[in-house]
């Protein structure tokens, strides 16, 4: 869409430095956010918010590479550390201090597993950044289209249990004047969407059900109008689950960033 293209400002770190400036924060887009059609919309929603508030951010662009998370969870520590060392040398080369990402897997890996290998950054998840922008008054949020809607939040494992962040996405949803409804298994007891641990990239082992179907059933049982997530992989799994029950026209699976972008008509 050309109108959208005109409004999105996505400078790369190289472009920043060429102007003799440095960004406040690096937006780590991640592989899903860069290549997956559904996740690209989440990426754009994040950019719209950053543009709207006027956050000075940059992306690595073609210099970004997989954090190595899927390799590490699959057990391929070699590949993980090779990716990590490469990424760290690029990040350190640009003297990056602060990173935001919309992928909890990138978030966890960059935040927890890179420091040991020489990559020390302040890493935040995009829901934490958005909450901070709201708290500091930089981002005004009104319910808009979501006012009074029933929204449930599916906790991504690597944001919730993995890093104990349960509140930021919920605080944002409540700012939309929406009715936040919880699934029985939420927060510390949240049920995985089925994609973690590199499961996204292979067929599931033999069983009686797919995990995303189990999770979608649980979400459908509380009749939400929106299933909100904070992870591109959870988004894919839940979207597939909702489609499986032919509910995609009545229930939207959306990232928290998309909720904010849509509510603010960005």
């Amino acid at each position: 869409m050309s109108s959208e293209k005109a409004t999105l400002k996505v400078p790369t770190i190289g472009e920043y430095l060429a102007n003799g400036e440095s960004p406040e924060i690096l937006f780590w887009v991640g592989c899903a956010g860069s290549f997956d059609d559904r996740a690209k919309k989440i990426t754009k929603a994040v950019v719209k918010i950053l543009n709207h508030v006027g956050v000075k951010f940059a992306v690595l662009g073609t210099e970004e590479s997989c954090t190595g998370d899927p390799a590490k969870r699959a057990g391929n520590e070699f590949l993980f550390q090779m990716q990590a060392m490469n990424n760290i040398s690029i990040l350190n080369g640009y003297d990056i201090k602060k990173i935001v990402t919309a992928c909890p897997h990138c978030f966890n890996t960059l935040k927890n597993e890179y420091p040991d290998l020489g990559g020390n950054y302040e890493v935040i998840h995009h829901t934490q950044l958005i909450q901070n922008l709201i708290d500091t008054g930089k981002l005004k949020v009104e319910g808009g289209t979501f006012k009074g809607k029933k929204i449930t939040f599916h906790d991504p494992c690597y944001l919730g249990r993995g890093n104990d962040e349960y509140e930021a996405p919920r605080i944002i949803i409540e700012k939309l004047d929406a009715e936040l409804v919880e699934m029985k298994r939420c927060k510390t007891n949240g049920l995985c969407c089925g994609a973690g641990g590199a499961q996204m990239f292979k067929e599931a082992e033999k069983g009686k059900k797919e995990i995303n179907i189990e999770r979608t059933e649980e979400a459908l049982s509380i009749n939400p109008q929106v299933i909100a997530t904070g992870c591109p992989f959870c988004n894919t799994m839940m979207t597939d689950g909702v489609k499986n029950f032919n509910k995609e026209h009545v229930i939207k699976v959306m990232d928290v960033a998309e909720l904010i972008a849509q509510a603010n008509d960005l």
């Binding site: 592989c31 997989c66 899927p70 390799a71 067929e203």
Partner: peptide, 29 residues
């Protein structure tokens, strides 16, 4: 490893992403 994982490993190693996309297309979005 399951063959799908081996593909993921070689994609990450060669393309910097678990899928078979060219790294030069990373900013196309």
């Amino acid at each position: 490893a399951p063959s799908e994982w081996n593909n993921v490993f070689s994609n990450i190693e060669n393309n910097g992403a678990p899928w078979q996309f060219s790294p030069s297309d990373r900013l196309n979005w």
